[in-house]
Write a protein that binds this DNA or RNA. Sequence first.
DNA 1: GCCACACTTGACACCAAGTGCCACTTAAGG
DNA 2: CCTTAAGTGGCACTTGGTGTCAAGTGTGGC
Lengths: 202, 202
Amino acid sequence: MTTETPEPMRDRTRRLAQMELTNVAQELFLERGYEDTTVDQIAAAAGMSRRTFFRYFPSKDDLVIGKYDLFGDRLADAFDARPHDEPVWQSLRRTFDITLEYVQDERQRARSDAMDRIVESSAQLNARYLQKMQRIQEILVGRVADRLALHGLSTAGAQPAAIIGAAFACLQAARSTWLQSEQQRPFSDYLDEAMSVFRVID
Amino acid sequence: MTTETPEPMRDRTRRLAQMELTNVAQELFLERGYEDTTVDQIAAAAGMSRRTFFRYFPSKDDLVIGKYDLFGDRLADAFDARPHDEPVWQSLRRTFDITLEYVQDERQRARSDAMDRIVESSAQLNARYLQKMQRIQEILVGRVADRLALHGLSTAGAQPAAIIGAAFACLQAARSTWLQSEQQRPFSDYLDEAMSVFRVID
DNA sequence: GCCACACTTGACACCAAGTGCCACTTAAGG
DNA sequence: CCTTAAGTGGCACTTGGTGTCAAGTGTGGC
């Protein structure tokens, strides 16, 4: 009985505190830049002690980059939802459609873009971002290998990792190009353009 | 007259000191691991002060990862040496041949592999490694765009970045797979296997 | 109302990576 | 021998991050 309500309660307050912190931090980052904003300043602006900050985020980086932790699982789910007889490359393209939803909501898009710019502004953050992406790719490699096996192709070698690596390279290239050009054409165009360069044996 | 010899002289001693540091550090890393080895320990083992260490390497990470700084330029040179009418994907495959030389020398290969294992053992180093690779890719994007333009293809969009990103994904996948399997087959086989998955419009 | 309990918080101390500053040595050239 | 420039080390300082402990805060049971 006692284990029913307490869990959601604490989680909610925790999430609220994290939200508050990210909001406060984002303003500071836009003002002084990421590296020139100390954890003390963020904590003070959010009305908590430095020590407490690190109870809500394992590191300063995670405040910005932590949101990508869910991304991998969401991609995996989306990939699993694709029909098994679909060519892998096309499944990956469709899997990436969930990144479009992310961009849909106008209000949240501005916030997300601001964060992305912060990530690009700091070498430190950029490195951690790439690392997160790498991890996400590892989640998907196994699934691609299974799919290839279904199609009667070798599953043990470097091919599965190469395929998802290439797919993510396309995603990355499209994203980067889209951010630099002033976003008149939809992001999906850039993604299609990038991924259509490759014909994958399947 | 005085400006002829001093430059190479200092550079040589500097390079020697860096070599010594990397050797000493490598042993310590293999003993205690990267993160549990402090700069103080490395400096002490090399017979210098902590402060001096940072005059030879801008950071502890660079001691391990700094060697990749040259890698980008070497790849660029190798790519430039390919015939301009060669299909881009094949040029990239041939460009990667210079990574094979790296592996050729038996004595140096062991050392290089040890360092690679160290890189893989630390999340911090791994992130910085990915970042370096990203930078190297940026060096090559322009050249791929030029090559595509020569073949009468669009050069402005995300395609050049997507192509080299995919190529590096193959390189990475092949390297990873090769490191895990016990290296009975040559590395070039893995690379061929990975890159042959893609047919690139050209 | 009160006690027991788990959870949260803040304060303090501590470590490691860097950085700036300054004084000292050392070696090369006149 | 002296001057000058480079290398070096010591020191203090900042910042991210962690461990520990003691004080608050709430919630349920009596």
